[in-house]
Design a binder for these strands. Structure first.
Lengths: 152, 152
DNA sequence: GTATCTGCAAATCCTTTGCAAGTCA
DNA sequence: TGACTTGCAAAGGATTTGCAGATAC
């Protein structure tokens, strides 16, 4: 299971492709790295703005776009109507999102490794399964559902 | 692998919970059923409006919300910044979305059945895996990537 | 020096909501 | 009849864009 994670300093990885290292980019990256959870653009903005009040949120979006393209940042959609981001270096894991109560449980990366293998073997597709949200129903809500329906 | 798909006429399934059968709801459902692909709210709206010009798109959204709650419609997010919908009755399958070229390949429902089992066994979580988008890289793009980078 | 970046402000896109009138049961 | 639905218009929230000035290299 070869890992294609890149190496090299931030500066190198940017300049390699003709991009520049700016204080904003550094601060955005470090906001993401210091966050243990997945973090939204708005949250990154708030963190950076605390130290450097005149950043603009459009810079955050533009930077995330760039880092995503360079593979330094992953996206995850927990179904909230907004995307969350995660720095490449931080630990990988997946999320079980209950469609009923909204609870999110983190599970180990390895739970999806057999799926990864199947997709590669049968479809020649290298799945990027570093941060995946899986929707369904938790035990608690399944039990609750056995009871009746009713409106609203 | 028990299937929890519901049965009964559309009218019954609505009135059971105190909802009414309206022409708009029928047309929205049939637009979805006639679509072989996943269809967006905007596309449903366009189809319905062709025959019944004064529907409003907010009715489409409200109806989708309702049908989703009743389990008659599934959502799928292909990462386009907009949600797509799928009628319960139509066949289930999954999607491999290439992060590079954007190609979408449909794969069989069974590809995820072992994952479903693992999640149930190890985490007591019943995953709703009827329409899933998996992101990654297709064979073509992986080969392309071996060549160099470069900007824009 | 100059192409790349940023801040600002406005625009865009998808989706939701309040409300009064309309309609299914 | 009366609760449920709809159309309309306006709001909402996340993300994107054009542009002129600022900055990394």
């Amino acid at each position: 299971m070869h890992d294609m994670r890149e190496t090299g300093s931030i500066s190198d990885r940017l300049s390699e492709k003709g991009y520049r290292l700016t204080p904003q980019r550094l601060m955005i990256l470090s906001a993401m790295e210091s966050s243990h959870d997945h973090i939204s653009a708005e949250e990154i903005y708030a963190q950076v703005a605390a130290k450097y009040p005149n950043v603009n949120i459009s810079t955050v979006y533009r930077t995330l776009e760039l880092l995503k393209k360079l593979g330094m940042v992953y996206e995850i959609d927990l179904g909230e109507g907004r995307i969350r981001y995660h720095a490449e270096g931080s630990g990988h894991h997946h999320h079980l999102v209950c469609q009923d109560c909204g609870d999110v449980v983190d599970i180990d990366e390895s739970a999806l490794s057999s799926l990864k293998d199947i997709l590669l073997r049968d479809y020649n597709f290298r799945a990027e399964l570093r941060h995946v949200a899986i929707f369904g129903f938790c035990e608690k809500c399944r039990k609750k559902q056995s009871g009746g329906g009713g409106k609203k």
